[in-house]
Structure formats: C-alpha cells, structure tokens
C-alpha cells in the first residue's frame, strides 16, 4: 500500500477532520493551525481532491433527524461476470447512496452486491428496492434487505497528524 499523503497533507487532514472552519477565510484559519502558507493549504486541498484522497467537501445531512429514518442495506446475488455492468447501473440510481461489490461467503452469505437505500419509511425503501430489482432483473438470483434498527457506535475516522503514525509500508 502506498502512501498518498505527506506530512503537510496529514496536518491539513488533522485540522479539518472535525470540519471546515466556519469563517469567511477558512484557509487562513487552517494555515494558522498548521503553520503552512495559506496558498499552500488551498493548493493541497485541491490536489487531494483531484487524487481522490478527499471525496468531496460539503455538508453531510443527518438523514435520520430529517425524517429519513428507514435505512436499508439491500444485498443481491448477481453473476460476477456482470458485476461491473449491473453495479454501475445500480450505483447510478439517484436514491442509492453507496454501492459496492463484496465477496460472498458460501453457504451462509450468498450476496455480492450491496446497495444502500434511505427512505422516510420502510415501505418507501421497499419501493426503491423494487426499482433496483427491476434494474437487476433477470440476473439477481437472491436478495435481502437489512434494515438498521439501532446505531451501536458512530465514531467517525480519526487520523493522527503525527509522523510516527503514518501507515505501515508507506514511503514518506
């Protein structure tokens, strides 16, 4: 595994992982916190965005508090050779927030395609799952929907700015 962020990037990540400063010039605030020049902060954020280290910068709505209380992880058994084609179609559906291919574990877990669906009720999620089913038809051999019923932990990711905690096998 190669390291895609250097020490200065990590300092910026550490300074922003709780959120972007809510100030007219947030880059200046981060510059002050990290000791980096302001222009470099913005440049590095842009570069990390381009490399995909930053997926996006934005607001994460709390679906649950906004009334989107039904969260269904739909799981499907589809032929591996069609995974790319079918996965892209499902991922492109406007209501699918995450779509991944994962390994099966036979016999207890036959599903390889995971598509996350949110709704204001289970029946709304069921309607959306039916639309996924129609996209996958006739290739889906089996499916299930796992609703979340309790959040047991939600800690988020923690990245240390310290050089000695840079991932193993990394080249700095």
């Amino acid at each position: 595994m190669s390291l895609k962020v250097d020490k200065a990037d990590r300092a910026i990540i550490a300074a922003t992982q709780k959120g972007l400063p809510l100030a007219p010039d947030p880059w200046a605030v981060i510059a002050e916190q990290t000791g980096l020049p302001k222009a470099e902060v913005l440049e590095r954020l842009r570069a990390m965005s381009e490399r995909g280290v930053i997926r996006r910068v934005g607001l994460v709505p709390n679906h649950y508090k906004l009334g989107w209380t039904a969260n269904g992880m739909s799981v499907w058994d589809i032929p591996d050779e069609l995974a790319g084609e079918l996965g892209s179609k499902v991922g492109a559906l406007p209501f699918v927030t995450h779509c991944y291919l994962r390994p099966r574990h036979m016999p207890e877990w036959p599903y390889n395609l995971f598509a996350m669906v949110h709704g204001r009720s289970r029946s709304e999620v069921e309607g959306k799952v039916a639309r996924i089913a129609s996209v996958l038809a006739p290739h889906a051999r089996a499916f299930d929907v796992l609703y979340s019923t309790r959040i047991l932990k939600k800690a988020g990711l923690r990245i240390s700015p310290d050089a000695e905690r840079i991932p193993h096998g990394s080249k700095v």
Binding site: M1, S2, L3, K4, V5, I13, T16, Q17, K18, G19, L20, L22, L45, M48, S49, R51, G52, V53, I54, R55, R56, V57, G58, L59, V60, P61, N62, K65, L66, G156, L157, I159, I166, P167, S170
Partner: peptide, 17 residues
Amino acid sequence: GAATRFGPLFHAERMGG
C-alpha cells in the same frame, strides 16, 4: 443536528489506510 458534518470527506484507502 440537521447535518452531522461540514468539511472534507476523506477516502481512507487513498490516504494509505
């Protein structure tokens, strides 16, 4: 609490994690 976070969302694998 309408939003849980505002800021960059990181891709852990691409950071080397």
